[in-house]
């Protein structure tokens, strides 16, 4: 049998083929990272069960009307003040009687901390509220909670909440400062 020299395959066009595939994938795929504010919706209301009674001092009401104006705790407010107001409500630094009752309790991993007994932020918006404003309000409330978490985390672990490595540490901070945002059942107040 005569030994033929192995023929070389011309691989010059391989690069072109690969380029074509590459461009195809570049065009059809997305690489943008989705970011957003995560929330949990409450289960549908049960008609038989009356809503739980919550003391007035434990509720922080935020109303947004169809003109995107804010009413916080019965007084007109502004979005730039909302964060500070929410923080004050959640921490009650001067132990005021119109802000939530604070209790000291032991949370595993943190020791003894002072947390509000049952603070709820009640958010209610109109059908005419702009989505932009709604998100801004959600954002400010989330910011208030995040700042409080950061402060507690700095005090206990010496680093910010987001920079905590240990999942258990994160969990205990979450236990101490939950996200108590409750959205009221929708109601039509004014049209626009």
């Amino acid at each position: 049998m005569s030994k033929r020299p192995t023929q070389e395959i011309n691989a010059g066009s391989m690069a072109d083929i690969a380029f074509l595939l590459l461009i195809f994938f570049l065009v059809t795929t997305t690489m943008d990272v989705d970011t957003g504010i995560s929330r949990k919706l409450p289960p549908p209301l049960d008609d038989q069960e009356p809503p739980p009674k919550i003391n007035e001092r434990n509720i922080f009401t935020v109303l947004v009307n169809s003109r995107d104006r804010l009413m916080v705790e019965g007084k007109p407010s502004d979005i730039s003040m909302l964060r500070a107001q929410a923080k004050e409500f959640m921490s009650n630094p001067r132990n005021a009687t119109n802000l939530p009752e604070m209790v000291t309790k032991e949370i595993p991993g943190l020791g003894i901390v002072t947390v509000p007994k049952s603070a709820v932020i009640s958010l209610k918006n109109d059908r005419g509220t702009s989505y932009k404003m709604y998100i801004a309000v959600q954002n400010e409330l989330a910011a208030a909670i995040n700042e409080l978490r950061d402060e507690l985390s700095m005090e206990k672990f010496g680093r910010k909440y987001k920079e905590l490595i240990n999942e258990d540490d994160k969990k205990s901070i979450q236990d101490a400062i939950p996200v108590p945002i409750s959205e009221a059942e929708p109601e039509d107040i004014g049209d626009r």
């Binding site: 957003g36 918006n125 509220t129 702009s130 989505y131």
Partner: peptide
Amino acid sequence: DIRMGIVTDVKQELRKSGAYKINYST
């Protein structure tokens, strides 16, 4: 720039269908 009305309706439907975990894309 959307008004909340339609978003509220969608959220109510999601609650009824048991899809509680939501994320507002921002």
